[in-house]
């Protein structure tokens, strides 16, 4: 998606993100952070392999187009 659109939001966001830490903060625990990072990389890897495998199957059956 065309998210150059975020630029003006980011200007505000950067200021907020670098502001002194508020009392109301809830930091994501380390294990969940790990889940987000590792899970996304595994997800992207699986998605890539799935598309390649589907392509191989459809190619062998002559069903690509």
């Amino acid at each position: 998606m065309p998210l150059l659109i975020t630029c003006p939001t980011i200007a505000t966001a950067t200021a907020l993100a670098t502001a002194p830490a508020p009392e109301t903060q809830w930091l994501l625990p380390a294990n969940l952070f790990r889940l987000v990072v590792v899970g996304s990389v595994i997800g992207l890897t699986v998605a890539t392999l799935v598309i390649v495998l589907i392509w191989l199957k459809e190619w062998r059956q002559g069903q690509l187009w």
Binding site: T12, L16, A17, A21, Q25, L27
Partner: peptide
């Protein structure tokens, strides 16, 4: 991040909620 930039892990970050 926890030591230097905790806001990046903050799930109540106002700018993030708006976004």
């Amino acid at each position: 991040l926890e030591a230097e930039h905790p806001s990046r892990l903050n799930m109540l970050l106002p700018a993030g909620l708006l976004f």
